[in-house]
């Protein structure tokens, strides 16, 4: 019997209601295969994803966070995804500086017609996270104490 558990990435996917969620739906209806590693959260717009949500997902053990929204120019709230780009860039930089791999955060534009792209992105991102391995913990264990500056 196999005792050691294989690493299965846990990915939180925040999909905008108007495009990417519909894209995921299309992937499902078209019976496209993609890995079952994502947990989808439907949001009204990619612009509603606060950096808090990203931090919280990692804090609670997500190995990757995927944010997907309408293509630029297609956001149903006009400027929502402009904010998303900037936030994602900022968060990538911040995570990186804190020592967390920025590759665990991904932003994609997926329209309602792009079921194929959705499946592709999930497949690819899952593989990426699989190679990165489990996300490092947020715990600041006292065992890690370094000297006071």
């Amino acid at each position: 019997m196999e005792t050691e558990k294989k690493f299965e990435p846990r990915i939180v996917a925040m999909l905008c209601n108007w495009c990417s969620y519909a894209g995921a739906d299309l992937a499902g209806v078209s019976r496209l295969q993609y890995p079952p590693n994502i947990r989808v959260i439907r949001v009204m717009c990619s612009g509603t994803v606060s950096p808090h949500h990203i931090v919280h997902a990692f804090q609670r053990g997500a190995d990757g966070v995927l944010i997907a929204g309408c293509h630029i120019g297609d956001c149903h709230y006009i400027r929502g995804n402009y904010m998303t780009i900037k936030r994602a860039k900022f968060m990538e930089g911040l995570l990186n500086f804190a020592g967390y791999s920025p590759e665990r955060l991904r932003l994609e534009w997926i329209s309602a017609a792009e079921g194929v792209k959705f499946a592709e992105v999930v497949r690819e991102f899952t593989e990426k996270i699989r190679t990165l391995g489990p996300a490092p913990s947020f715990e600041a264990s006292p065992r890690l104490a370094t000297a006071v500056l």
Partner: peptide, 21 residues
């Protein structure tokens, strides 16, 4: 100095400080 560190070392460095909070 921090930017030059490898990602994992940077994480260790920060956690080593954060754990005193």
């Amino acid at each position: 100095m921090l930017e030059k560190m490898a990602g994992e070392d940077r994480l260790k460095w920060w956690l080593g400080h954060f754990n005193r909070c």
